[in-house]
Structure formats: C-alpha cells, structure tokens
C-alpha cells in the first residue's frame, strides 16, 4: 500500500509548522502592512495629507523590496535575520523574511482597497465636521472592509507559497518536507501528499476569505 511508505506524523508536524509560519507572519504582515498601506493612501495624490515626496519615497522602497524574488530575499536577509532572531533556520528564522517579503505587497493591496472607497463618502464625512483622521478610521477603513479582507486572503495565500519556498533554506513546513523527501529522496508520494494538502489549504483560505467578503459587503 503506497500510504504505508508515508510517515504521517512527519506530515502532521510539517502541516502545523506551515500553519504556524503562515499565522504568525500573516498577523505581523497585517500589523506592519496596514499602517504602511494607510500611509500610502493618505499621502497619495488628491488625498487629505497628500505628500508627493513622502509618497514617492515610501513607494520607491516598497517597490524595491517587491522586485526582489522571494528566494533571493531569503538569502540576502539572512544576516539581518540572525541579528534579530538569533537563527536563520526553522520557524523562528523564517518569519522575519516572510514578513519583509509580504508586508510591502499587502501595503499595496491596502492602498488599492482604500482608493476604491467612494470619494463622495470621504467628502461627506469631512463636510460633517470629521477630522481627516476621524474620516480615515470611521469612514474609509470601515467602507473598505470587504477589500481589506480580500487583501488579507490573497496575502495569506502568498504566505503559504512563500513558506513552501522557505523550506529550501531550512525553514521547515510542508514545502520543506516535499523537497527533502519528494525531491531529494525520490519519495514522490510524500511530495504529492504535501502538494494536495497545500492545495486544500489554499482553497480553504480563499473560500473563507470569499465568504467573509460577502458577509461584509453592504454595497
């Protein structure tokens, strides 16, 4: 039986590692990327705090990070990772590069989601005597909620992808397992099982994201 050759305990461990990495990185990515995205939005053209220079600088830096392929970013960031977490291996070693890799991406998605909010709503809020900050927190962010949920969903899926990649440099998780057993030891079954689990995981994230978006869309 093909399944006898699979160490299910290993797969369970790998799955829990993947979930941990995705979970922690997603939380940190949102915590860092959301303010960055808001900053991009408010400093952008035609917005309450339009600052072309500040926007340009922030945008430039985020674009640089986004242009580096993640696998290279992992390697380039290793010294910094070691400095911050003490190791470049395992879950601890991989969360920092994951967050650096996805926060700029998430920030862009947040910026786009906020820009989707009807300008008339912003104007109405200001006309009612709201300060720009009140307008952003009480009108723009709540109105953008479905878009923000969609952004988190997409980012979570990218994180699943990146965690698999980080397996290549010893990050652990399902990707790591798939490469070590499936690729290096020619145990194709394990690779297949890992891939199937990853597929299910991505489908699950997307489906939950979609249902939340629907639930919070009142437009």
């Amino acid at each position: 039986m093909w399944s006898d050759r699979i160490n299910w305990a290993d797969i369970g461990t790998a799955l829990s590692q993947t979930l941990t990495m995705v979970g922690i990185s997603l939380l940190l990515t949102v915590l860092i990327g959301l303010p960055l995205g808001i900053l991009l939005f408010v400093t952008g053209k035609g917005q309450p705090f339009a600052r072309p220079l500040g926007y340009g600088a922030l945008s430039f830096v985020l674009n640089i990070i986004r242009s580096v392929p993640f696998i290279i970013l992992l390697i380039v960031l290793m010294p910094v990772t070691v400095l911050i977490t003490g190791t470049s291996l395992g879950i601890r070693g991989v969360i920092f590069p994951l967050v650096v890799g996805t926060a700029p991406f998430f920030a862009r998605l947040v910026e786009t989601a906020l820009r989707e909010v009807d300008r008339g709503v912003i104007e109405a809020s200001l006309a009612m005597g709201a300060s720009p900050i009140q307008t952003i927190f009480r009108a723009v962010l709540p109105e953008a909620l479905p878009g923000l949920i969609a952004a988190v969903t997409v980012t979570a899926i990218v994180l699943v992808d990146y965690t698999a990649m980080s397996g290549a440099i010893g990050g652990g998780g399902l990707g790591d397992l798939a490469i070590r057993y499936g690729y290096h030891r020619f145990q194709t079954e394990i690779m297949l099982v890992c891939v199937v689990i990853l597929i299910l995981l991505v489908q699950l994230i997307q489906a939950s994201g979609n249902s939340l978006v629907t639930r919070f869309t009142r437009r």
């Binding site: 009807d118 008339g120 709503v121 109405a124 009612m128 005597g129 709201a130 109105e143 919070f216 009142r218």
Partner: peptide, 19 residues
C-alpha cells in the same frame, strides 16, 4: 470642524456609508 458641524450638506449621490 465646528463650523462644518453647524452646516449640513446633502449630496447628489447621497454619499451614505454603505457599511
């Protein structure tokens, strides 16, 4: 902000908060 609170405004496209 206080001045704007003392002046109501109604818009062509209503500009209500959809959420």
């Amino acid at each position: 902000h206080a001045l704007r609170r003392s002046i109501g405004m109604v818009f062509q496209h209503f500009n209500l908060l959809s959420g």
